[in-house]
């Protein structure tokens, strides 16, 4: 039976790298006595795969991983059991059964929602002016940025990868393309603006919080984004 788990990672555990988060959840499965499936062999490992790694220092309230289990309790019961063995900073938000033929979260991710704000001490001096300029910058029909790969530098238009954008209070909301084909990081968008304004963006300036991950159920013409958890259903 395939299960999709949604979790949050906030506070000081944001300093844990992706590999350590995986180990953390593997141990949590055992502590919560989840009847998880193991691979065969002398060093069996749990059938568990994460939708997408979260960068060190970022936080999330909408990340996912999939597991396979032999048996399970109800969603409510399993959420409680898992949260009873979490440490401060991690919380399991949903636990849903997937159809047997569903694809792994990793291969489905098409877009993510982010909330970006400035770390204390790094805010633009005039936030209203920043808001205006940034909005203007993003409303261009084309936004070409230099994308550096290991081998080369190339100019890429990121505009089509920005699905949604708005600024409320002092938080920038962005919905960006994500996944193995097209992938845009929120810090790159802000960086592009600062480069455009020819000003420096400190590597510590941004606080980045992911809030949701989506699959695309549409076709080549139309995007239909569905939150990953909505592909499964609660076990009652």
């Amino acid at each position: 039976m395939k299960i999709r788990i949604k979790f949050s990672k906030t506070g000081c555990v944001k300093f844990m790298g992706h590999l350590d988060v995986m180990h953390y959840f593997q141990k949590a499965m055992r502590r919560a006595k989840v009847d998880i499936k193991y691979s065969e062999g002398y060093s069996p490992h749990q059938i568990m795969s994460f939708a997408s790694p979260l960068s060190l220092g970022h936080t999330t309230s909408g990340d996912y991983f999939d597991i396979e289990v032999h048996s399970t309790g109800t969603s409510d019961e399993m959420i409680k059991r898992l949260n009873d063995v979490m440490v401060e900073g991690f919380e399991v938000l949903s636990y849903r059964k997937l159809p047997d033929d569903s694809k792994a979260a990793m291969s489905l991710v098409a877009a993510c929602d982010y909330e970006v704000s400035f770390r204390e001490g790094y805010e633009p001096a005039d936030f209203e002016a920043f808001k205006k300029d940034f909005t203007l910058f993003l409303s261009q029909s084309e936004i070409n940025v230099v994308k550096q790969t290991k081998k080369s530098e190339r100019l890429v238009d990121i505009k089509p990868l920005i699905y949604k954008f708005n600024i409320k209070d002092k938080t920038i909301f962005m919905q960006l393309a994500s996944g193995s084909i097209e992938n845009l990081k929120p810090e790159l968008v802000v960086k592009a603006f600062f480069d455009y304004k020819q000003s420096e963006l400190s590597q510590f300036a941004l606080l980045i919080h992911r809030t949701q991950m989506y699959a695309d159920a549409g076709d080549e013409e139309h995007r239909v984004l569905i939150a990953l958890e909505d592909l499964g259903e609660d076990i009652l």
Binding site: C12, V13, F15, M16, G17, D20, L56, G57, V87, E88, G89, Q203, F204
Partner: peptide, 13 residues
């Protein structure tokens, strides 16, 4: 913490 190696060494929890 974002500058040093393995910051998790120092956060406890």
């Amino acid at each position: 913490l974002l500058t040093i190696e393995k910051p998790v060494r120092y956060i406890g929890n």
